[in-house]
């Protein structure tokens, strides 16, 4: 990845973070922490990796994306809006009655959303189904997914992990947004023992570990994953919950609440984004 591309991605991510904050402030609810921890990966996917067309959201050869941790919807919506699937102003309708931007992604309402998700643990199975269809139809598309680390406590994730390796879904590249926090506290304290790399290796996956906020590292991991001939790839992305907004970083209380007016202004100041257009 050249410096120009790197700068472009950084700028898109910065603007995206501002839109996430503004959308959440407007809706007065939602999940900032896990949206901000995943936005760099999403920015990379939609602006550097994925073959998608905002003018034709359903074209059959497109790459697919499944947000398994569906509560990170504000991040996905922002990436889709930045990409041009719908006007950025629509982000301010997040979670409001009648909005296409539901609390969790709804593939029937919003163009660009490939799978309805939200109930944790279900997304990876859906991604597997897409990858199986790709193999069956000899398509060359890639299926991308982002899972949460708290989500690893759901048993279905491990059922799906077995399926992906059994069917040699090397056209599946998943990210684990490893920000160490879930609603009730640190995931190490709640239940998950960590060791995600060895767990996925034991389940037959090709595992990589990176800094989930480093675009070059994300790029290298995805390129390596694409070289894999048999196994699905799990890119364990070490992230910071609330990344980019200092008072939200690593703070469990910012899992699922919106910033008030003052907090919003402060957050936007940190993001260098005071003007309405996010710049």
């Amino acid at each position: 990845m050249d410096e120009k591309k790197l700068d472009e991605l950084k700028e898109i991510a910065r603007q995206s973070r501002a839109w996430i904050i503004k959308a959440l402030a407007e809706s007065k609810s939602g999940h900032p922490g896990g949206s901000l921890s995943a936005i760099d990966i999403l920015t990379y996917l939609y602006f550097s990796a994925m073959n998608v067309d905002p003018q034709d959201p359903h074209f059959v050869d497109r790459d697919r994306f499944v947000l398994c941790k569906g509560h990170g919807a504000p991040a996905l919506y922002t990436s889709l809006a930045m990409k041009g699937f719908f006007p950025k102003e629509d982000l301010l309708t997040l979670r409001k009655l009648g909005s296409r931007l539901q609390g969790h992604p709804d593939m029937r309402k919003l163009p660009g959303v490939d799978a309805s998700t939200g109930s944790l643990g279900q997304g990876l199975s859906i991604a597997n189904g897409m990858a199986l269809a790709g193999k069956l139809d000899n398509k060359s598309y890639t299926v991308y997914a982002i899972l949460g680390d708290g989500e690893m406590e759901e048993g279905q994730v491990w059922e799906a992990a077995m399926t992906a390796s059994h069917y040699q879904l090397n056209n599946l590249i998943a990210f684990l947004d490893y920000n160490h926090l879930q609603i009730d506290g640190r995931i190490e304290d709640v239940k998950s023992g960590g060791n995600f790399a060895s767990r996925f290796k034991a389940f037959g996956w090709h595992v990589l570990e990176i800094d989930g906020h480093d675009f070059k590292a994300i790029d290298e991991a995805v390129l390596a994953a694409k070289q894999e001939l048999y196994a699905p790839s799990m890119i364990i992305a070490h992230t910071v919950k609330g990344k980019g907004v200092p008072f939200m970083e690593g703070a469990v209380e910012w899992h699922g609440k919106a910033p008030n007016k003052e907090q919003t202004a402060e957050a936007l100041k940190f993001l260098g984004a005071l003007k309405e257009d996010g710049r």
Partner: peptide, 23 residues
């Protein structure tokens, strides 16, 4: 034919994913 093993929840999700791809 996709044998999913004794994993009904995963089977339903996988079926959903296949259905999004016109199966």
């Amino acid at each position: 034919f996709f044998q999913m093993g004794i994993a009904e929840q995963d089977m339903m999700g996988t079926a959903a994913g296949l259905a999004t791809c016109n199966k």
